[in-house]
Each structure stands twice: as structure tokens, then as C-alpha cells.
Design a protein around this nucleic acid. Sequence first.
DNA 1: TATAGGACCC
Length: 674
Amino acid sequence: MSHFRCIAKHPTISLVESSCTSLRQINQVHTQLLITGLLDDPFLHAQFVASIALKHPNLLDYSTRALDQNPNPTVFAFNSLIRANSKSPNPQKSFQLYNKLLKSGHNPYPDNYTFTFLVRTCAQLLDCEASRAVHACVMKRGFETDPHVQSGLIYMYAEMGLLGCARKVFDEIPLPDLVTLTAMVTACAKSGHVGFARGLFDSMPEKDPVAWNAMISGYAQCGQSREALDMFNLMQMEGVRINEVTLVSVLSACSHLGALDQGRWAHAYIGRKKITVTVTLGTALIDMYAKCGDVNKAMEVFWGMREKNVYTWSSAMGGLAMNGLGHECLELFALMKQERVLPNEVTFVSILRGCSVAGLVEEGRMHFYSMRKEFGLEPIFEHYGCMVDLYGRVGRLNEALDFINKMPVKPHAGAWGALLNACRIHKNTKLGELASRKIVELESKNHGAYVLLSNIYADSKNWDRVSNVRQTMKAKGVRKLPGCSIIEVNGEVHEFVVGDKSHPRYGEIEAKLEEISKRLKSSGYVANTFPVLFDLEEEEKEDALCQHSERIAIAFGLISLKEGVPIRIVKNLRVCWDCHAVTAIISDIYNREIIVRDRNRFHHYKDGACSCKGAFSYSLFIYPLLPSIYYLGMGEPLRMIDIVQKAAGIMVHEQGSVLVLPRLLFQPVDSSPR
DNA sequence: TATAGGACCC
């Protein structure tokens, strides 16, 4: 049998890897190998075990059993199984395999590979004790000088948040090489010390694509998306080879920034360089397009993908829900079930959000209960929050409260937040007080809870209490996050904060803001001076001219983008009511499409209307009045300009009686994604 | 066989 050692892979093994997709086919090959006695060869046996373990992670039991079918399994066979298990839902099993390896007596001893995989298991489990034990074994067996083991240990400690330990391993390496340096760069970035990671990266005498990718994904994961893109540009300038991993990180950064141009460029690059669109890369593309507001393109990518997994489906469904297309999201779920792709927890978050934006309470309930019954998935906080939102938004406040009280886990701030928001919409002061008290108990610095509560008091003209809330906030040092908007112009990302005057073109921006203000006035717009909406950003306004970050960004978009090019803005907070109204009017008077992504959804403004419909009121920290007036007394959208004037009238005269209309009246303004 | 390894909800 020794001749098998001379060839890279036995043809039968190649068969397992390439064409065996079903258990039945693998069984056939397996039987063949058993009958012919080929499995008695330890080398071939190891190849067989390894190929099943790594290519078919869902058949781990099968490959584990196959390990026993050779009396002298090699350490390679053990290592492959340990590796496969470290990535599985039950990583502990790799420890059992390690014990088995130690007990198997004769030739196989753990080697450096064994430990690089065991270390991954520890990182997966976040088990400090196991980590220390594994590190001790590494020392005992003398592998502490192996660069791969070293970098594995660095990775392990970083994953556990023990950067000090990672550092210690690193410092003991006399001459760190590319691999260990890269591991340390990753460790620093993962622990949030991305600046330090960069310093280390810059000090590296040589850098390969892996090192560059580590740095880019480090920035992307720390939320420093702009730096990630800068790094990517630098990487290109240096002529470093760009691969799939690079592009996934880049697309992820684009998603966070809403940098559609850069994302499109990356997509075109993939096409130009004929890079294979794998499931991961395709999913990253879908996510990018959806989060940049181009849901049509996201779906185009989705339909074009041959292979789709649960990530792909969840991503597309989440994108549809986020863009207000709840019915389409549910349709997609039906299709997903038809294709027999098993949903996971994340899929259900998308489904429930879809139900929420479409106002489908019963359907949402049905899906929520089917999670456990049909799919054995335990609901997590997000799902409970979605359910409270589902009941609350249509005014079924008691059911929402009931739902919270019956939660098998301690209700989190998000669940109470959804209720509080519903109380604001439906003017339930008493329940609103309860909800906000609960939130503050859980998160004493949750500014959203204070803002919403004060809005509820303001609705009932209880000004004393409004100022009480404001005082409490001051006393407790609760501050609102500064609003910040970004806009991409010619592939460059510009960032504006409230009252920002730092931009080099601020002079032009200011002139544009004044012009906008004038044109708004002449179109009949009355500036939002209603005391009803207590908006903390109000305090930060510097003059009569609205200085909210998205307005500055819009003004900049108007002066710097060609006519007809949609203005795309990404905001870190929710858009406020006034900006929402104003943006719609700007879209009309400047005949410009404006797309704003706020904290968790999209607003597509066109010809004076916004696509968000009722979805404007979503969870915590929102200004939910608009949708109620949006469709007032009509089956179809009013022009924004009318709405604003109407709203002004209504709000001035009848603050307490703005009606929330049944969701059935909401007509989609958007086109269908397909 | 290993270092980067990424995508869906947060």
C-alpha cells in the first residue's frame, strides 16, 4: 500500500471530496474502501477521515466513527477531526479526541498542528481554564517555540479578551515572523486597540495579503470603516494582491458607512478580476446593497447566486424588511422553506421585522411560536423585542405588556423600549411611565428612554414633568449621542456632526443652507417650533437655521453631486421629525431623490414623499408622529408639502389627538425589488 | 493540515 504515499490524493478520496454530496454517496465510497481493504492503510484512512471531516461538517459523527476503522490512525487523522470539531457547534468534542489521541498508546503523539487546533477550540468556548490547560500542555511538550502554535495562543487569548496574556506570548518570541506579527495585529485590533495594531502593522518589515487583510478587517470590526477603506486604498497603491477575504471586509465597511459608490466599485472589481462570487462574498454584496439603500440591486445579486445558505437568505430578508418591504420579506421566507434551507435565530429577527413593517400581527405571532415548535429555535431578546413592537404599534398595548410579563427571561431594555415607543404613539402616559422607569432601572444612562418619556408628557401638555425629566437627565449626566451624518461624494466619505463648520467647503454649504431655508419658507413650510417634540438636539442648535447633521450633509450633496444623482446619507441616530419633513420637501423642490439611512431603516424621499410609511416609528428613540398624519383621512399618500401644513395645523390645535390610522391604509410607495 | 477568514440579527 505504500505507493499511495507517492501521490497527493487517492482517486477514491478525490471522489469523496468532489462529487459526494449526499450521505448515500459517501456511504458507497466508504463501503468500497472497506471491502477492498484500502482503509487499512493509515495514510489513506487519514485522507478519508480528513476529507469527510472538513468537507462535510454536518457529518462529524460519521467521520469520528470512521476514525476507529483503522487500528493505527495517524496523528493527521486525529488533527483533522480536532480541527473540524473546533469549528462545530460542539467544540468540546475536540478535547475528547485529544484524550483519545493520548490514550491510543503507540505511535501517534500530538504535534504542533494538534495544538493550533486545540487552541481554536478554547477560543471558541471562551474557556479560561481549558485555555490554561492547553497552554500548559504546549509547554510540557515543547511546542511553545513553534510560530503557528504561538500565533494560535495569541489568537486564543485575544478572543478571550486577555490581551495581556496574548502580549506575553508575543513578547517571549525572540524574532517574531510574519505569521506571529499578523496574529498580534489581529489580537490588538480585536481587543479594540486598533491604533496599536496599526503601529505594529506599520513596523512590519514585510507584509503579505494576509497581514493587510488582518489590518483591514481589524478596522472594519472595530467600526472604523473609513480607516478600513483608507487601508484598502493603500493596499491597492502598494500593489498587494487583493483576494476574496479583502473584499468581504471592504464590503462590510461599505455597509456600515452606506458607501454605495465604493461598494459598487468593489462589485465591479470582482467582475473585472473574475473573482469567484462565493456564498460569503455574495452575501456580503447583498448586505452592502441592502444597507446602502439599493434593495433592487441586493435582490438582483441574490437571485443571481447559485448557492445560497442561511446567511444569504437572512441577509436578503433583513434587507427587504429594513427597506420597508415587509410582504416581500415574508414571501422570501416562504420560498426559503420551499428550498429546504433551515432558518436560524437571525432569520427570525428578519421575519418578525418584516411582519412589523407590514403590520401583520397574527402572522408575526404565528412565526414567533413556530420558531420553537417547528424549528427548535429558542427565542432571544431581539425576538421578544420585535413581538412587543408588533403588538404595541397597532395599539394592542395590554397584549404587549402581557407579553413582556410572560417572557421566560428577564425583560431587557429593548422590550420595554418597544412598549414605551408604542405608548408614545398611542398616548398612554401611565404605561409609558412604567416602561421608562423599567428601562432606567436596567440602563440608567439610556437617553432614549428619557427622551420618549418627556415626549409623552409633552403630548399631554404636562410641562412640569417635561422639565423634571430634563433636570433628571442633567443631574444624572445623561447625554444624547451627537448626531452625525455621512455622505459619499466621488468615492470620498464626508462626515458632518451637529453644527459642523469644519468642512473646507463650509462657506458654500452655509450659502446653500440659507437658500434651502428661503425656498422652504416660500413653499409654505413652517419651521418646526412645536414644543410638543422635545428633541435634545434642539439644545445643540446654534441658530435659527437648522444645523442637524443630515441637513448639512444634504446641502453638501446638493452643491457637490451632479444633477439627478440621488443624495445618499447615513445617519448614526434616528432622523428627527422636522428633518424628516424638510427632507421630503427638499426632494420635491430640488427635484432630487434623497435616501437617508438612519439608525435602523431607510427613508427614500422622492417628489415630496417618503417611502418609510409607518415604519418611521420603530423602536427606541424615535419621533413617531409623522406616519399618523402622513395618510390622514386618505387611502393614498398626501404630498409632503400638504402634510407639513396639515401637520402644523393639527399639532398646534390638537396636540393630543393626532390619530394613528390603521396600517391597512399604507400603500407602498416603493417599487417591488424584483 | 496551520497564520488573515470574512458575510445574516446585535
